[in-house]
Amino acid sequence: MLTNFAALEVGQHLYWQIGNIRIHGQVFLTSWILLGALLVFISLGTKKMENDPKGLQNLLEFLWDYIRDLARTQIGEKVYRDWMPFIGTLFLFVFVSNWGGALIPWRLIKLPSGELGAPTADINTTIALALLVSLSYFYAGLSNKGWRYFEYYVHPTPIMLPFKILEDFTKPLSLSFRLFGNILADELVVGVLVFLVPLILPIPVMFLGLFTSAIQALIFATLAAYYIGEAVEEHH
């Protein structure tokens, strides 16, 4: 039975060797497939833009509106336009990765090592996203307020300084591990349940997984937008 558990192949990767660096091939394979599908979907929807939206364009406009609302409420009216594409990309990337990982039966495709799955179930992906968020909020703060950005660290009192510095480390850490942990746990739970009871029982858990996946995408994008909004906020 334990050998069958191992069939989940946790922590095994399909290694690609490029020069003297090694990368996780399965992460890039799934992300390329999913992002390719996303880009095809978006180009189909934006091919013929009309003033009276129909079909796909309607859906894309709803999505755009949703992302704009998210960015606008978190970042604020003044600079949300600059950051909307980044927040939207984070949301779409995480959402497509999570749902793609949960909906597509990747396990049917056999790899020599490791297995295909949600790109966000790999710690490299989530840390990459979280570090991009960190860079973004530093850049947003510095480009909007210049050196005055560092007033944020002693606001409202200088006592906050160590905590604010600590936050710069905990923000990417919590962002990356929350997403990674949730998606990996969901994949594992579904995998274990499918292995134990292959019929019916995993279905509610799969739906729960879809729910978690969507929520995680929303949480990631919202927090990223909130951090950027916090950095550009003017203290008075």
């Binding site: 946790v10 922590g11 990767h13 490029i18 660096i21 090694r22 990368i23 996780h24 992460v27 890039f28 992300s31 992002l35 990309t89 984070l90 990337f93 790109p119 790999d122 710690i123 490299n124 992906t125 840390i127 990459a128 996203l129 570090l131 991009l132 990996l184």
Partner: peptide, 15 residues
Amino acid sequence: LFDINATLPLMAIQV
């Protein structure tokens, strides 16, 4: 699970 390598920067560039 915590095997961090060049996947990270490449994924960042991709995003």
